[in-house]
Each structure stands twice: as structure tokens, then as C-alpha cells.
Amino acid sequence: MSQIQNVADAVAAGKAKVVGGLVQEALDAGCDATELLNAMIDAMGVVGERFKKNEIFVPEMLIAAKAMKKGVEVLKPHLAGDSANKYGKMIIGTVAGDLHDIGKNLVAMMIESAGFEVIDLGVDVSIQKFVDAVKANPDVKIVGCSALLTTTMPALKDTVAALNEADFRSNIKVMVGGAPITQEFADEIGADAYTPDAASAAQKAKELAS
């Protein structure tokens, strides 16, 4: 199916302007919508791999994610029910006291591109806000918390502790990240996963949700 390949290539190359048209062409040619979605998700996986290897950088990754979004917009009406978000829902936010969100936004975009519906709570998110968001979305699968400053790591710890004590804990996975965060710290505070960059975060989220 060369049309599917064309869509995947356009996503990987970040051609946001043409992706929509290519998706439509592929659909018109009779390609299966789910198959198209999977090809696009895989293309983003390749983009993520190249990012991890430093072959491409933040701007190229963002451009690819934007192209992905354009493609999904065209595809959505052709997908059954909620299957555009094949992996389910994720809640994400930067913890209390921290206003930094570029890294968190990147993670949100990559996770969305990986086939999730992402609910972004923004920056300086209180523990209560995280907890309330999970309660309001009982089908949420993953909660991601970010801290950029070493001084807000304690807030991350408290946030994860609160999530760990909540009665919904067994239904969710908790992911953490941010410049000063390490795997050791994630283990120490009882998070389920830590990833060092946005591409690995998307990969990990897929593993955790499937």
C-alpha cells in the first residue's frame, strides 16, 4: 500500500501541509483507517528514535508531531468511536511551584502522537488538581508529573505520594520526568516509570498502557 507509506513518510518528514491531503487520498483509495493510524504512530516512533540518537532535535520532532496531528484530524471521522486514541487517556502536568513547561509540552505532544488522548493540566499544578483530574476521568491510564528544578523535586515526591495513597492507584500508572529527575529518584518516590526524554516517554507510555 504505497498510499499508507506516503502518509507515514509525510509524518516523519513533518510535512504538515500535505499530510491531510495524503490521508484523504489513501482513504479514497480504500486504505483501512486503523491501518493508516498505526502507520502514522509507527512513523512517529521512528521520529522518536532519531531524536533519542540526537539525529534530529526538538524543532524537527515538533514539526513531525504537528504533521501527525493534521493527519489524525482528517482520519478521525473514519475511525470507529474513540479509536484515534488507541492507547487511552493520559493526564500530565508540571508540579506545584514549577512554572516550566516546554519539556512537559513536548512529552504531551509525543504521547498524543503515539495514540493517546492527553489532558494537560498545565504548570504549577497542585496535588489536589492532579487527584481531582484522575477522579473526573476514571478511564485515565497514566498520570505524568514533571519537575524542572531541583527545588521542586520535593513537590514531585509529594504529588506521587498522594497518587500512591489514592484508592484509584491500582487503575493508573505514574510516570515522572524533568531535567533533575533520575531513575533512582523515581524509584525512591514510588513512581512506575521515569524516562529521560519525550521520545522515550511516548514509547514507555505505550508499553504501560498496552
Partner: peptide, 18 residues
């Protein structure tokens, strides 16, 4: 000017990465 609080900071920063 608190850059982290400006909504346009992210786009501006990403543009300037190249």
C-alpha cells in the same frame, strides 16, 4: 519580564533552536 510565564516563550524558544 518572567519568560516562563509568557505564553509565546515556548514558540519563540523553539524557533530560535535552529
Amino acid at each position: 519580564l518572567e519568560l516562563a510565564a509568557l505564553p509565546e516563550f515556548q514558540d519563540c524558544f523553539i524557533d530560535e533552536l535552529e
